[in-house]
Computed example of a mutant assay.
Amino acid sequence: MKDNYRSRIDKAKAALEETDVILLGGGAGLSAAAGLLYSGKRFTDHFGSFIEKYRFTDLYTSSFYPFGTQEEKWAYWAKHISLNRYETGPTNLYQDFYQLVQDKPYFVITTNVESQFEKAGFAPEKVFEIQGNYSFLQCAKGCHNKLYYNEHIVKEMIEKTVDCKIPSELVPQCPVCGGKMDPNLRSNQYFVQDENWYERDASYKDFLLDAEGKKIVLLELGVGFNTPGIIRYPFERLNYHNENAILIRLNKDHPVGMEENKDKTMAFTEDMREVVLAFMK
Protein backbone atom coordinates (compact mmCIF):
# COMPACT_ATOMS: atom_id res chain seq x y z
CA MET A 1 0.00 0.00 0.00
CA LYS A 2 2.85 2.39 0.89
CA ASP A 3 4.56 1.70 -2.44
CA ASN A 4 1.30 2.37 -4.28
CA TYR A 5 0.86 5.65 -2.42
CA ARG A 6 4.41 6.70 -3.18
CA SER A 7 3.99 5.91 -6.88
CA ARG A 8 0.75 7.90 -7.03
CA ILE A 9 2.43 10.84 -5.31
CA ASP A 10 5.36 10.73 -7.75
CA LYS A 11 3.05 10.52 -10.75
CA ALA A 12 0.91 13.40 -9.50
CA LYS A 13 3.98 15.53 -8.75
CA ALA A 14 5.27 14.96 -12.25
CA ALA A 15 1.92 15.92 -13.75
CA LEU A 16 1.82 19.13 -11.69
CA GLU A 17 5.38 20.04 -12.66
CA GLU A 18 4.86 19.37 -16.37
CA THR A 19 1.42 20.88 -16.79
CA ASP A 20 0.78 24.15 -18.57
CA VAL A 21 -2.28 25.13 -16.50
CA ILE A 22 -4.14 23.98 -13.38
CA LEU A 23 -7.88 24.06 -12.80
CA LEU A 24 -8.84 23.64 -9.16
CA GLY A 25 -12.30 22.53 -8.10
CA GLY A 26 -13.06 22.98 -4.41
CA GLY A 27 -15.98 21.30 -2.64
CA ALA A 28 -17.29 20.96 0.89
CA GLY A 29 -14.82 18.19 1.69
CA LEU A 30 -11.95 20.64 1.22
CA SER A 31 -13.27 23.05 3.85
CA ALA A 32 -14.05 20.15 6.18
CA ALA A 33 -10.47 18.89 5.80
CA ALA A 34 -9.29 22.43 6.56
CA GLY A 35 -11.17 22.33 9.88
CA LEU A 36 -14.26 24.32 8.90
CA LEU A 37 -16.57 21.67 10.31
CA TYR A 38 -20.33 22.13 10.52
CA SER A 39 -20.77 19.73 13.42
CA GLY A 40 -19.00 18.53 16.55
CA LYS A 41 -17.11 20.78 18.93
CA ARG A 42 -16.86 23.72 16.53
CA PHE A 43 -20.64 23.77 16.32
CA THR A 44 -21.42 23.17 19.99
CA ASP A 45 -18.84 25.72 21.18
CA HIS A 46 -20.43 28.55 19.21
CA PHE A 47 -24.15 27.72 19.03
CA GLY A 48 -25.01 26.56 22.54
CA SER A 49 -28.01 28.85 23.00
CA PHE A 50 -29.42 27.92 19.60
CA ILE A 51 -28.90 24.23 20.28
CA GLU A 52 -30.74 24.56 23.58
CA LYS A 53 -33.63 26.54 22.11
CA TYR A 54 -34.11 24.82 18.74
CA ARG A 55 -32.42 21.43 19.28
CA PHE A 56 -30.07 22.03 16.37
CA THR A 57 -27.60 19.25 15.61
CA ASP A 58 -25.30 20.85 13.02
CA LEU A 59 -24.82 23.98 10.94
CA TYR A 60 -26.00 22.43 7.69
CA THR A 61 -29.46 21.25 8.75
CA SER A 62 -30.02 24.28 10.96
CA SER A 63 -29.65 26.47 7.86
CA PHE A 64 -33.00 25.13 6.66
CA TYR A 65 -34.86 25.71 9.94
CA PRO A 66 -38.21 27.53 9.45
CA PHE A 67 -37.75 30.34 11.95
CA GLY A 68 -40.99 31.90 13.13
CA THR A 69 -39.72 35.46 12.93
CA GLN A 70 -37.13 37.46 11.04
CA GLU A 71 -35.62 38.47 14.39
CA GLU A 72 -34.89 34.81 15.16
CA LYS A 73 -33.70 34.03 11.64
CA TRP A 74 -31.11 36.81 11.59
CA ALA A 75 -29.83 36.11 15.08
CA TYR A 76 -28.92 32.64 13.81
CA TRP A 77 -27.62 33.70 10.41
CA ALA A 78 -25.51 36.52 11.84
CA LYS A 79 -23.65 33.99 13.99
CA HIS A 80 -23.44 31.45 11.17
CA ILE A 81 -22.00 34.02 8.75
CA SER A 82 -19.65 35.55 11.31
CA LEU A 83 -18.12 32.24 12.38
CA ASN A 84 -17.50 30.96 8.88
CA ARG A 85 -16.59 34.20 7.11
CA TYR A 86 -15.28 36.79 9.57
CA GLU A 87 -14.05 34.95 12.66
CA THR A 88 -12.07 32.29 10.77
CA GLY A 89 -8.80 33.34 9.18
CA PRO A 90 -6.95 31.64 6.33
CA THR A 91 -6.44 27.95 7.01
CA ASN A 92 -3.21 26.03 6.50
CA LEU A 93 -4.70 23.66 3.95
CA TYR A 94 -5.91 26.38 1.59
CA GLN A 95 -2.57 28.16 1.94
CA ASP A 96 -0.79 24.91 1.08
CA PHE A 97 -2.76 24.59 -2.14
CA TYR A 98 -1.94 28.18 -3.02
CA GLN A 99 1.76 27.47 -2.54
CA LEU A 100 1.39 24.42 -4.76
CA VAL A 101 -0.17 26.22 -7.75
CA GLN A 102 0.89 29.85 -7.48
CA ASP A 103 3.66 29.62 -10.08
CA LYS A 104 1.39 28.11 -12.74
CA PRO A 105 -1.54 29.68 -14.62
CA TYR A 106 -4.54 28.58 -12.56
CA PHE A 107 -8.23 29.10 -12.05
CA VAL A 108 -10.53 28.05 -9.21
CA ILE A 109 -14.18 27.06 -9.33
CA THR A 110 -15.70 26.31 -5.95
CA THR A 111 -19.04 25.58 -4.35
CA ASN A 112 -17.66 26.80 -1.01
CA VAL A 113 -18.88 30.18 0.19
CA GLU A 114 -16.53 31.27 2.97
CA SER A 115 -13.80 33.04 0.90
CA GLN A 116 -11.01 30.70 2.04
CA PHE A 117 -9.37 30.68 -1.39
CA GLU A 118 -9.09 34.46 -1.40
CA LYS A 119 -7.92 34.54 2.22
CA ALA A 120 -5.18 32.04 1.35
CA GLY A 121 -3.76 34.28 -1.37
CA PHE A 122 -5.54 33.18 -4.55
CA ALA A 123 -6.23 36.14 -6.83
CA PRO A 124 -9.94 37.12 -6.48
CA GLU A 125 -10.33 37.44 -10.24
CA LYS A 126 -9.24 33.81 -10.59
CA VAL A 127 -11.80 32.41 -8.12
CA PHE A 128 -15.38 31.66 -9.16
CA GLU A 129 -17.59 31.15 -6.08
CA ILE A 130 -20.48 29.84 -8.09
CA GLN A 131 -22.85 29.19 -5.18
CA GLY A 132 -22.55 32.59 -3.51
CA ASN A 133 -20.62 34.11 -0.65
CA TYR A 134 -21.31 34.58 3.06
CA SER A 135 -20.15 38.19 2.81
CA PHE A 136 -23.27 39.40 1.02
CA LEU A 137 -27.00 39.82 1.44
CA GLN A 138 -29.55 39.92 -1.37
CA CYS A 139 -33.25 40.52 -1.87
CA ALA A 140 -34.99 37.30 -0.82
CA LYS A 141 -37.07 37.42 -3.99
CA GLY A 142 -34.19 38.53 -6.21
CA CYS A 143 -36.01 41.66 -7.32
CA HIS A 144 -32.70 43.19 -8.48
CA ASN A 145 -29.17 41.87 -8.98
CA LYS A 146 -27.21 43.95 -6.48
CA LEU A 147 -25.49 42.40 -3.45
CA TYR A 148 -24.83 44.08 -0.10
CA TYR A 149 -21.67 43.58 1.97
CA ASN A 150 -22.79 42.51 5.43
CA GLU A 151 -19.83 42.58 7.84
CA HIS A 152 -20.93 45.66 9.80
CA ILE A 153 -24.56 44.66 10.21
CA VAL A 154 -23.65 41.06 11.06
CA LYS A 155 -21.42 42.24 13.90
CA GLU A 156 -24.11 44.59 15.18
CA MET A 157 -26.71 41.80 15.08
CA ILE A 158 -24.47 39.55 17.17
CA GLU A 159 -23.73 42.30 19.69
CA LYS A 160 -27.44 42.98 20.19
CA THR A 161 -28.77 39.41 20.12
CA VAL A 162 -30.82 38.53 23.21
CA ASP A 163 -32.47 35.12 23.68
CA CYS A 164 -31.65 34.16 20.09
CA LYS A 165 -33.33 37.26 18.64
CA ILE A 166 -32.09 40.53 17.21
CA PRO A 167 -33.91 43.88 17.65
CA SER A 168 -36.59 44.42 15.02
CA GLU A 169 -34.87 47.58 13.77
CA LEU A 170 -31.87 45.49 12.67
CA VAL A 171 -33.88 43.14 10.46
CA PRO A 172 -32.59 43.85 6.93
CA GLN A 173 -35.06 44.96 4.29
CA CYS A 174 -34.59 45.09 0.54
CA PRO A 175 -33.85 48.73 -0.39
CA VAL A 176 -35.69 48.32 -3.68
CA CYS A 177 -38.90 46.39 -2.96
CA GLY A 178 -38.94 46.69 0.82
CA GLY A 179 -39.20 42.93 1.23
CA LYS A 180 -37.12 40.41 3.12
CA MET A 181 -33.41 39.76 2.63
CA ASP A 182 -31.43 36.52 2.51
CA PRO A 183 -27.76 35.53 2.58
CA ASN A 184 -26.42 35.31 -0.96
CA LEU A 185 -26.42 31.50 -1.09
CA ARG A 186 -27.87 29.38 -3.87
CA SER A 187 -30.82 27.75 -2.11
CA ASN A 188 -33.73 28.52 -4.44
CA GLN A 189 -34.67 30.13 -7.75
CA TYR A 190 -34.15 33.63 -6.36
CA PHE A 191 -30.36 33.36 -6.02
CA VAL A 192 -28.84 36.63 -7.25
CA GLN A 193 -26.02 36.47 -9.78
CA ASP A 194 -24.58 39.97 -9.83
CA GLU A 195 -22.17 41.59 -12.29
CA ASN A 196 -19.17 40.09 -10.50
CA TRP A 197 -20.70 36.59 -10.77
CA TYR A 198 -21.06 36.93 -14.54
CA GLU A 199 -17.52 38.28 -14.86
CA ARG A 200 -16.16 35.23 -13.04
CA ASP A 201 -18.31 32.94 -15.16
CA ALA A 202 -16.85 34.52 -18.29
CA SER A 203 -13.31 34.23 -16.87
CA TYR A 204 -13.88 30.53 -16.21
CA LYS A 205 -15.04 29.93 -19.77
CA ASP A 206 -12.13 31.95 -21.15
CA PHE A 207 -9.71 29.89 -19.05
CA LEU A 208 -11.12 26.66 -20.46
CA LEU A 209 -10.92 27.97 -24.02
CA ASP A 210 -7.34 29.11 -23.54
CA ALA A 211 -6.43 25.71 -22.05
CA GLU A 212 -7.55 23.80 -25.15
CA GLY A 213 -4.62 21.85 -26.55
CA LYS A 214 -2.49 22.50 -23.47
CA LYS A 215 -1.48 20.17 -20.70
CA ILE A 216 -4.00 20.68 -17.91
CA VAL A 217 -4.23 19.23 -14.41
CA LEU A 218 -7.75 19.06 -13.01
CA LEU A 219 -7.18 19.25 -9.28
CA GLU A 220 -10.46 18.19 -7.67
CA LEU A 221 -10.59 18.75 -3.90
CA GLY A 222 -13.26 17.28 -1.66
CA VAL A 223 -16.06 17.31 -4.22
CA GLY A 224 -18.93 14.95 -3.50
CA PHE A 225 -22.37 14.41 -4.96
CA ASN A 226 -24.41 17.22 -3.43
CA THR A 227 -24.05 19.32 -6.59
CA PRO A 228 -21.98 17.07 -8.89
CA GLY A 229 -23.00 18.94 -12.04
CA ILE A 230 -20.94 21.97 -11.04
CA ILE A 231 -17.46 20.47 -10.62
CA ARG A 232 -17.32 16.68 -10.47
CA TYR A 233 -19.09 15.75 -13.72
CA PRO A 234 -17.58 18.62 -15.77
CA PHE A 235 -14.09 17.65 -14.58
CA GLU A 236 -14.75 14.04 -15.61
CA ARG A 237 -15.88 15.22 -19.06
CA LEU A 238 -12.85 17.49 -19.45
CA ASN A 239 -10.59 14.62 -18.50
CA TYR A 240 -12.28 12.27 -20.94
CA HIS A 241 -12.32 14.60 -23.94
CA ASN A 242 -8.88 16.20 -23.53
CA GLU A 243 -5.99 13.85 -24.23
CA ASN A 244 -3.66 16.29 -22.45
CA ALA A 245 -5.70 16.32 -19.23
CA ILE A 246 -5.00 14.54 -15.96
CA LEU A 247 -7.51 14.43 -13.08
CA ILE A 248 -6.04 14.43 -9.57
CA ARG A 249 -8.85 13.75 -7.10
CA LEU A 250 -8.37 14.22 -3.35
CA ASN A 251 -11.48 12.75 -1.78
CA LYS A 252 -11.76 10.64 1.34
CA ASP A 253 -15.33 9.49 0.74
CA HIS A 254 -15.89 9.52 -3.04
CA PRO A 255 -12.65 8.70 -4.87
CA VAL A 256 -14.11 6.56 -7.67
CA GLY A 257 -14.99 8.21 -10.96
CA MET A 258 -15.80 7.23 -14.54
CA GLU A 259 -14.46 3.86 -15.58
CA GLU A 260 -13.44 5.41 -18.91
CA ASN A 261 -11.11 7.81 -17.06
CA LYS A 262 -9.43 5.34 -14.72
CA ASP A 263 -6.09 5.49 -16.56
CA LYS A 264 -6.11 9.31 -16.49
CA THR A 265 -7.17 9.74 -12.86
CA MET A 266 -5.14 9.66 -9.67
CA ALA A 267 -7.28 9.39 -6.56
CA PHE A 268 -6.13 10.01 -3.00
CA THR A 269 -8.18 9.12 0.06
CA GLU A 270 -5.39 9.92 2.49
CA ASP A 271 -5.27 13.01 4.71
CA MET A 272 -5.56 15.95 2.34
CA ARG A 273 -2.86 18.10 3.91
CA GLU A 274 -0.45 15.17 4.00
CA VAL A 275 -1.02 14.68 0.28
CA VAL A 276 -0.57 18.32 -0.74
CA LEU A 277 2.60 18.61 1.34
CA ALA A 278 3.91 15.48 -0.36
CA PHE A 279 3.21 17.11 -3.74
CA MET A 280 5.42 20.06 -2.72
CA LYS A 281 8.42 18.02 -1.52
Rank of each mutant, 00 (worst) to 15 (best):
G224V: 06
R85P: 00
G68V: 02
I158E: 06
F117L: 11
K205I: 08
E118S: 12
L218F: 04
N184E: 03
P172F: 08
V171E: 10
T91M: 11
V101L: 10
E18G: 10
N196D: 14
E260W: 00
F279E: 00
Q70L: 06
E129G: 02
L24V: 11
K2Y: 05
G29W: 07
Y86K: 14
S39C: 03
T91I: 08
E87N: 08
T44Q: 03
T227F: 09
K160C: 01
F128M: 08
S62I: 01
R200Y: 09
Y65T: 05
F268T: 04
Y190S: 07
P66S: 03
K2R: 10
Y5D: 11
A33Y: 04
P90H: 08
E220P: 02
V176C: 03
C164N: 15
V176M: 05
A14K: 15
K281F: 03
N4K: 09
T44I: 12
N4L: 11
K215M: 05
V192W: 03
Q193K: 14
E156H: 04
Y76P: 03
S7E: 09
Q102F: 03
E259V: 13
E243G: 06
V108W: 07
R55M: 05
F279V: 00
L209D: 06
Q95E: 14
T269S: 15
E212Y: 09
E18Y: 03
S168M: 02
L170N: 00
D182H: 08
G178L: 05
D96C: 13
T110E: 09
G27F: 04
L100C: 12
T110Y: 01
K104V: 08
A34V: 01
A140H: 01
C174Y: 12
L24M: 14
Y148N: 01
V127L: 05
R186G: 06
I216S: 09
F107Y: 15
V176W: 02
R249H: 08
N242R: 14
D201P: 02
R85A: 09
Q131Y: 07
I109L: 13
S203D: 11
W197P: 08
F136N: 00
I9T: 00
T111A: 12
P255G: 09
E270W: 09
D271F: 11
F122P: 12
A123H: 14
